[in-house]
C-alpha cells in the first residue's frame, strides 16, 4: 500500500490534500502590491522553481525552520522536491521529522512509528545461518528504528523465526522496502 494512502486513512491526518502547484496566498499578496503603472515585468517577480517545478507553495506557519525554508534556496532538484513533499504532507496533517530522497527516485518521509526495511537473505557461508533473513537496511525515524532493532530483531540483525513476528501491537508500521516511498512527481502532480 502506498504510504500516502496509509497516512490518509489515519485519524490525525484527516485534512484534505492540497494542490500545491497553484499560486499561494503569499505570492498573490505580493503581486497585488505592485503599481500597474510601474511598468514592471510581473512574471519575473513571481517566485518559481529554478528546476521547473513551478511556483513555490506556501510554507505552513508551524513548519520547522520556516524562515529558512521559504527562501527556497536549494542546491539540487532533489532537495527542492524533498521540501515540497514535506510541506504537502504537513498540510495534509502528517508532520514529518524529515525525509530522504533515495536512489530509486522515491522520497521516504521520517515519521515516528514508521520504518522502511529491506530484508536480505544469507545465501552462503555458515550452514546454520544460510536462509536466515536480516534487516539489510533500516530507514526512517531514528528513535523508532533503534527501538525496533533492539526489541524485534534477534541479535539486532536477524528476523525472528520462532516467535510471534507480528509487531503491529508495538505501534510500528514496517514497510518492506521499496514500499512506502513517495513518487514526488506523482504526489506533487508535477510534469516529468
Amino acid at each position: 500500500m502506498p504510504l500516502t494512502e496509509s497516512l490518509g486513512s489515519m485519524e490525525s491526518r484527516s485534512q484534505s490534500v492540497e494542490d500545491t502547484s497553484v499560486p499561494t496566498e503569499e505570492t498573490t499578496t505580493k503581486t497585488d502590491t505592485f503599481d500597474k503603472n510601474a511598468n514592471i515585468d510581473l512574471a519575473a517577480d513571481v517566485p518559481t522553481s529554478p528546476f521547473g517545478f513551478g511556483p513555490y507553495p506556501e510554507v505552513p506557519a508551524d513548519y520547522p525552520f520556516r524562515e529558512t525554508v521559504q527562501l527556497w534556496d536549494n542546491a539540487t532538484p532533489e532537495h527542492e522536491l524533498l521540501v515540497r513533499v514535506r510541506i504537502k504532507l504537513w498540510k495534509q496533517g502528517t508532520q514529518t521529522k524529515g525525509a530522504m530522497f533515495d536512489n530509486n527516485g522515491l522520497i521516504y518521509p521520517s515519521i515516528p512509528g514508521v520504518l522502511y526495511v529491506r530484508w536480505c537473505t544469507i545465501e552462503e557461508g555458515d550452514p546454520d545461518l544460510v536462509g536466515r533473513r536480516y534487516a539489510g537496511s533500516v530507514m526512517g525515524d531514528g528513535d523508532t528504528a533503534e527501538k525496533w532493532e533492539s526489541s524485534f530483531l534477534i541479535d539486532g540483525w536477524y528476523e525472528p523465526i520462532d516467535v510471534n513476528s507480528d509487531i503491529a501491537a508495538s505501534g510500528i508500521k514496517v514497510y518492506e522496502y521499496p514500499d512506502g516511498g513517495i513518487n514526488p512527481y506523482n504526489f506533487l502532480e508535477l510534469p516529468r
Binding site: P64, T76, E78, H79, L82, V83, R86, T96, K97, G98, A99, M100, F101, D102, N103, S110, C120, I122, E124, G125, L129, Y134, A135, G136, S137, V138, M139, G140, D141, G142, A145, E146, E149, W157
Partner: peptide, 17 residues
C-alpha cells in the same frame, strides 16, 4: 548518495561469506 532534509536515520547491514 541519499539526499536528506530534516531528521532521518539510515542503517545498512551486510552479512557476507
Amino acid at each position: 548518495t541519499k539526499f536528506i532534509d530534516g531528521s532521518f536515520y539510515v542503517k545498512y547491514k551486510k552479512n557476507f561469506p
